[in-house]
Amino acid sequence: MIRLTNVCKDYPTRVGMRRVLDSINVTVQPGEHLGILGRNGAGKSTLVRLISGAEAPTLGTIERNMAVSWPLAFSGGFQGSLTGADNVRFICRIYGVDYQPRFEFVKDFSELGIYLNEPVATYSSGMRARLAFAISMTIDFDCYLIDEVMAVGDQRFRERCRVELFEKRRDKAMLIVSHSHRYLKNVCDRFLLIEGGRLEDHNDFDEVYFRYKQLIGEGFESREDMVAAMDASTPEAQLRRERKRLRRLAANAGE
């Protein structure tokens, strides 16, 4: 369980301290999947950093009775002059786990081949993301922090990440920051909306997404409109529309 009690976080600005998170309370139970929504700069990543322990709260307490991951696919921790293998070795060392089986796994999953022995500085951003995700999967956590992870890699890699994370580790707790509604809706069972430093706890996706859309100024007239629009944007719906258009074209050509 992770419990945040009256947590505040201030950041200094030119016009004095700004309170990004204002006495928020939230509890994450084992196995729960939480989606975090909010405008840019609302404090989503700050919340993730507080929970990961990379930053201390200004006020309040954070209890962790679970092993919490670093933000997934997070590649900021790589030392550019070290090789991919060196970085795997480093992670294994600080977590006190065997290197060899994990290195095999990373080699297998990241498909970086000989590049694992080259400095990370020479990697493309896609390669770096693949390495980062693969390394994240070598340590077992009770709770995974996922900050816009699925935006990386090609289709095939994304699919493999999905299997690794949401199928093999579906029983683990997850905190997911994403702007992708399809992704959140499919994966999460609880949602947090951050607005004005406050946290809104929602259990219904359509409800929270309606609120979120209102906040970012793309509001729908009603929830029904929004659900219809979202359904219309699914791949299936797009395919239906495309078929219809082609049929119409064919019919016109036939005339």
Binding site: Y95, G96, P101, F105, D108, F109, I139, V163
Partner: peptide, 17 residues
């Protein structure tokens, strides 16, 4: 689908002093 035969053993996070 990609096979993950080399999946490392689980329960890796050992709690030490």
């Amino acid at each position: 689908m990609h096979s993950n035969s080399s999946q490392p053993p689980t329960g890796a996070l050992v709690h030490h002093s």
